[in-house]
Design a protein around this nucleic acid. Structure first.
Length: 547
RNA sequence: GGCCCUGUGGUCAAGCGGUUAAGACGGAGCCCUCUCAAGGCUCAAUCUCGGGUUCGAUUCCCGACAGGGUCACCA
């Protein structure tokens, strides 16, 4: 059979470069030794979830801790998956979490020399190599219809054979020249398949950067490399793109492990040196009583946009993911509490081999601790940032009087002091804590535990003696003085020794006042709260709370 | 079902032939306290199961079992 002629008939494009011309067009990168080139290669659905961020963070760290390149490639070979604005959404989401691409799709960079970064725009390259493979007898056209393939599969299943297009089942593998040209002139649609040279009975060991040595058999499947629309499958595009974009380290989910033999054979027939691979254990989630991989369809609450909207502190999410990526990160962080996480020496080979369960409690803990480290300005910026994008009008308005809100934050969150509140996981949680400082949000449902008479008496007595210039101690002494007048113990110790002798104690006095002023039995130091509210509002609230 | 990966407390996990089997989250309890928060202290909880190898296995080997993944003209 004249293979050159066949290649021209199958792929008639006349504007394709030669194999060596592509090598010149995309020369090896000039990089320091040890620098890794990694990539994020999503399909353009625009939806990325925590699992994707986890893997993207591994890519980004691997590149940026070695002085390498982290780029974005869009795998749009399946047009069913395309969603408008998806690429921008990916970039924006990752940027929110502090991950930046050095080059790639929609990235303005002088480094963009290995594009185009959309696979659809790279059709010529794939076709050039498919043509070369055909001419070398390593690929062939297949005219089987979906129905025929189904039949083959059924037959294979019935016989207990491995399903797929291989060996004797690969009907089109040995089509005669005549059969091919007659099918072609009949305009029958066709795909291009790899003519696998592999032997299923031969095993080989492959070294994965995370999983270590993995023994698999050679590939014997005549996989599709060019679909009937002339667009490559993932496998073919992967081999060509990662070669010509000069990727050094392919980090991807372990679901790809199964197709590794295919990819390695592709690299081999193409004459490319394969990159190093790191197959990451995927992030899992509890579903009923079994674990399963995080799924974009089933777990919309794991969307990155969800975390943004929920007001999680982005650096906290990243740090949580870092603890999952390299478990010694946490220890390192304890030793270097002030250091940037980027200073940590991320190691791809220290990643866990088995899939970690996504632990919302742990994320919450990291989040609490990160938020508790925020300075006044950072805290203000964080909360305002959330309010501006996701908060109500009232929430937004709250940040207009900077001086006032800063005072409140210092009180409720302890910003500026050493006693920091550490139970806040998200921005809205913190903002809700400021509600009673704003009259428009102050709508108390008083829940006094004492009878009306006691409440009124305490309130009146306090109002009479209240002096906004009192310091904390003086203020509290006045509270203590009120206690015996309503039959309560002034000292906690006295009360504890003899609880039956009193109707209550100072803390009950404080509670009445607290509910009156803040609407809640819980608040930070009441004296300071009153100070921030000012005498007028304090007294007005006390008056309004009377039964 | 075939093939591949994985298997230390509830969760994330250190460990790499001899350890009282780290640490973190979570849980329980106590103390302190004007409430909340914060802080201090204490406790419970783990090597999937069999066989080997070895003076000695959580650690090495084999098997079982369990969990996960994958078997497309999707990525």
């Amino acid at each position: 059979m004249n293979l050159e002629k066949l290649a021209k008939a199958l792929i008639p494009d006349t504007d394709l470069l030669s194999v060596s011309e592509y090598e010149q067009l995309y020369p090896p990168r000039d990089m320091p030794a040890g620098a890794e080139v990694t990539r994020l290669a999503p399909s353009p659905t625009g939806f990325i979830h925590l699992g994707n961020l986890y893997s993207a963070l591994a890519d980004e760290r691997a590149a940026h801790t070695t002085g390498g390149i982290f780029y974005l490639r869009i795998e749009d070979t399946d047009d069913k998956r395309k969603v408008d604005g998806a690429v921008e959404s990916v970039i924006r989401s990752l940027d929110y979490f502090g991950l930046k691409f050095d080059e790639g799709a929609e990235i303005a960079s002088p480094l963009n020399k290995y594009g185009p970064y959309y696979q659809r725009a790279r059709a010529k390259i794939y076709r050039a190599f498919a043509k070369d493979l055909i001419a070398r007898g390593l690929a062939y056209p297949c005219f089987c219809t979906a129905e025929e393939l189904d039949e083959i599969r059924e037959e294979q299943t019935a016989q207990g054979q491995t399903p797929g297009y291989w060996g004797k089942w690969a009907k089109c593998r040995n089509l005669s020249e005549e059969e091919i040209y007659s099918a072609l002139s009949a305009k029958k649609p066709f795909v291009i398949r790899l003519k696998s040279q592999g032997d299923i009975s031969k095993k080989f060991t492959f070294r994965d950067a995370i999983k270590g040595d993995i023994t698999v058999t050679e590939n014997d499947q005549d996989v599709v490399i060019l679909k009937s629309d002339g667009i490559p499958t993932y496998h073919f595009a992967h081999a060509i793109d990662d070669h010509f974009m000069r990727t050094t380290l392919v980090i991807r989910g372990e679901e790809w492990l199964a197709s590794l033999p295919v990819h390695l054979e592709l690299f081999k027939v193409l004459g490319f040196k394969p990159p190093r691979y790191a197959h990451t254990a995927s992030l899992m989630k509890m579903d009923g009583d079994t674990k399963r991989k995080l799924s974009k369809r089933k777990d919309p609450e794991l969307s990155l946009d969800y975390y943004r909207a929920a007001g999680y502190f982005a650096p906290a999410v990243v740090k949580y993911l870092m603890t999952l990526l390299n478990s010694d990160f946490e220890e390192w962080e304890m030793k270097n509490p002030a250091a940037d996480y980027r200073d940590f020496k991320f190691r791809i080979n220290k990643m866990g081999k088995s899939g970690a369960l996504f632990d919302l409690q742990k994320l919450a803990d990291v989040s609490r601790s990160e938020i508790s480290k925020l300075s006044e300005d950072e805290c203000f910026a964080f909360l305002k940032g959330w309010a501006d994008e996701f908060g109500s009008e009232a929430d937004k308005a709250r940040f207009e009087n900077r001086e006032y809100i800063i005072k409140i934050l210092a009180l409720i969150m302890g910003t500026g002091g050493k006693k920091r509140r550490k139970d806040l996981e998200t921005a809205p949680q913190a903002i809700r804590l400021t509600d009673y400082f704003f009259d428009d949000a102050f709508s108390p449902e008083y829940s006094f535990r004492q009878d009306d008479e006691t409440v009124n008496r305490v309130l009146s007595l306090f109002a009479e003696s209240y002096d906004p210039s009192d310091d904390n101690q003086t203020w509290f002494a006045k509270l203590k003085a009120i206690a015996p007048r309503v039959g309560f113990a002034a000292e906690m110790s006295e009360y504890k020794q003899n609880p039956e002798a009193y109707r209550g104690n100072v803390s009950d006095v404080a509670e009445i006042l607290r509910i009156a002023v803040t609407g809640s039995p819980n608040s930070p130091d009441l004296c300071t709260v009153m100070g921030i509210l000012g005498k007028e509002r304090t007294l007005a609230r006390i008056a309004a709370a009377k039964r």
